[in-house]
Design a protein around this nucleic acid. Structure first.
Lengths: 154, 154
DNA sequence: CTACGTGCAAACTATTTGCTGAAAA
DNA sequence: TTTTCAGCAAATAGTTTGCACGTAG
């Protein structure tokens, strides 16, 4: 579950290339730069991602970022979230089984990921008790992170 | 917790008027029509709400619906949610203590509200274990409702 | 040499805002 | 008679798309 962003990058890059080829999609330099940036910085929105990608290649256009993210999402290689600031945020989707939720600091925007099997079981139970077949869920916790608590005590 | 949309309307209307007056905001006919529509139909987005309000008064403008919803939200009289269709959806916020989450049918869009204290406790625990002070949360379950399961068996 | 991918700019969608006249305090 | 509201239309923000040129298979 824990991963080393530097050491694990080659394996992830290969996986992305394979997955794209399977769909007869090309692993272009632009696409790979976007994937790599997202690998190293999670939870970026399109604007932030675009700015970051441009540090490596200033010619990459806004539309390419959007189109690439859509493509990666269709391939199950990235996930999209919405934390209420009006922009979509993306992160790489490392494994099929892995699911996590987010806790967002409402002061500084820091995002922590967490997993909680007990909650997931209870969600299943809620769905079942209403006759629903659960497909997916989204859970975001909003609060104040330790650092911001220290800055504004009381 | 259960409420009768018809019988309980006068009490709610009075509460809205009181709350607005406290903020030196006027309970105009347009605003009250919007509140009443939202009282009778929950989880509407702005477009749907506007269309519904226009059945009673065709002169009400789009901007008024937006501005009224913002106002009501600031007063704690309505809640805003996002279920991933790109539009904000609103519902009346009946009581201070009451909190509920949503389960959405991904086929027909039906929305069921539920409360689960066990999950809320676990959320508190997750926040505490990361040193966060929990302020609020959002949890949406996506699945197939009983009716849609019956329509498309297997 | 054909199909796919890119960058640009224009289009679109949901939401917000400026302005002028109407209406309540 | 001053402040708050409403309706309209124009502006904005995030995202998508059409087009003409490039580039990989």
């Amino acid at each position: 579950m824990t991963f080393d962003p530097v050491a694990d990058w080659p394996a992830w890059r290969d996986r992305v290339v394979d997955r794209l080829q399977r769909d007869h999609q090309r692993a272009t330099p632009q696409r790979m730069r976007i994937v790599e940036t997202l690998w190293h910085h999670g939870h970026l929105n399109v604007d932030e991602l675009h700015r970051e990608v441009r540090k490596a290649d200033a010619s990459v256009g806004y539309a390419t970022v959007y189109r690439t993210l859509k493509l990666l999402e269709r391939c199950g290689l990235v996930n999209c979230s919405n934390f209420g600031d009006g922009t979509a945020r993306y992160e790489v989707h490392s494994g099929a089984a892995e699911h996590h939720d987010h806790m967002i600091c409402t002061d500084c925007g820091t995002i922590v990921e967490f997993e909680n099997d007990a909650i997931e079981l209870l969600q299943e139970e809620v769905a079942r008790s209403h006759g629903y077949v659960l497909k997916s869920h989204r859970m975001d916790l909003f609060g104040i992170c330790p650092a911001c608590q220290a800055l504004a005590p009381r």
